[in-house]
Simulated scan of single mutants.
Amino acid sequence: MTGPAAPQSVSDSAEAEKHPIDVRGLVSCFGDNVIHDGLDLQVERGEVLGVVGGSGTGKSVLLNTIIGLKVPDGGTVRLFGGDMRTASRRRWSSVERRWGVLFQQGALFSNLTVRENVAAPLHEHTRLPRREVEEIADLKIAMVGLPARAATLKPAELSGGMRKRAGLARALAMDPELLFLDEPTAGLDPIAAEAFDALIKDLSDSLDLTVFMITHDLDSLYAITDRVAVLADKKVVAVAPVRELERSEHPWIKQYFLGPRGRAAGAAEDRARAD
């Protein structure tokens, strides 16, 4: 049985405040297939961090490991200063209340209404009266820009963009400090994707969120990230603002950010800033 955690020193607490996510020497395997080998990543409090990499580099594996859906095969994952590999069940429950996750497909319960989906984490982690839970759920639904009528709809009755927003409302139900996003604009048309980017940026700024966002969307990377972490060679090979990555000599980074789509996304962001 895991014993009580040792009290944090002042320096440990300061580090936890500065880096709510701290991954050191991570090893991730599936059988003989090594996905990560000595991966290091620190996420700074209050930043929007984009995570990119080619197919098979383990972006979703990294997210799943951080939130406890996969056990690390080596290394450590520290959240808010605590080593999650040795954390007690009570510690895990406490930390889970401090994050929200929007999975790529929304992962909404198909037999529940939007209000019931958003309320689910509140029922799981609190003992609030049902009426108060429903009021909070409706507040979160409005916060992500959904109309009030969406609360009583089932996921199948929503458009793709509305499902994303409903999933985001559920991720925000517990007023998290950390927000994990897995391909948040995937499947959205350019107008809806741009609106969703703006929503994430507004929520990040207004709620002081730390955002860990896996994405292939170059427009999102240029528009809303503070830094981008690049996965390649089984590690994080670079972490920097996107404009600095444009100067990288790493072959994959050059191809990704200086290819036709990367140049177009960068030019579009330049025009937006000029306006």
Rank of each mutant, 00 (worst) to 15 (best):
F30Q: 13
D275L: 15
L102A: 05
H36K: 09
D197E: 15
Q105E: 12
L231H: 05
L199N: 03
R45D: 08
T185P: 02
L158I: 08
E157I: 10
T225P: 04
T113R: 06
K254G: 11
K201D: 14
L231G: 04
K154M: 12
R149E: 14
S110P: 12
F180Q: 01
V133Y: 00
T2E: 15
G266L: 04
L139H: 15
Q255A: 15
H123E: 14
G259S: 04
G259H: 00
D226A: 07
R243S: 13
R170V: 05
D37H: 11
I35M: 05
K70E: 15
M84T: 04
A274F: 12
A150F: 02
L172Y: 01
V236L: 08
M84C: 08
D217A: 04
P155N: 08
P184L: 05
Q104T: 07
G81D: 03
G106K: 00
D233A: 11
H250R: 04
L69Y: 12
A265T: 02
G82P: 06
G100T: 04
V133C: 03
A148C: 09
M174G: 05
N64C: 09
A166H: 03
D197R: 13
L258E: 12
R247W: 10
D22N: 01
D22V: 00
T65M: 03
T126Y: 01
E246Q: 14
S94C: 11
Q42Y: 05
L258P: 00
L79T: 00
V27R: 11
F212W: 03
S9P: 07
L172C: 06
I200S: 04
R243E: 15
H125V: 01
D40T: 08
V27K: 10
D202P: 09
A264T: 09
R271E: 15
E96C: 14
P190W: 03
G161H: 10
M143V: 07
N64R: 13
Y222T: 02
M84V: 07
V236M: 08
L203T: 03
G160E: 09
G46I: 00
H216N: 03
W99Q: 10
D189N: 10
G167D: 05
L172H: 04
T210C: 00
F80C: 04
V230I: 10
S11V: 13
G106I: 01
P184A: 02
S60Y: 06
A119Y: 08
H36D: 07
T126N: 02
V211W: 06
A267K: 12
D202I: 11
T65Q: 00
L207I: 12
V27D: 07
M213H: 07
D205E: 15
R24H: 09
V118T: 08
E177R: 09
M84Q: 08
T86C: 11
L245Y: 06
L203S: 07
L179E: 06
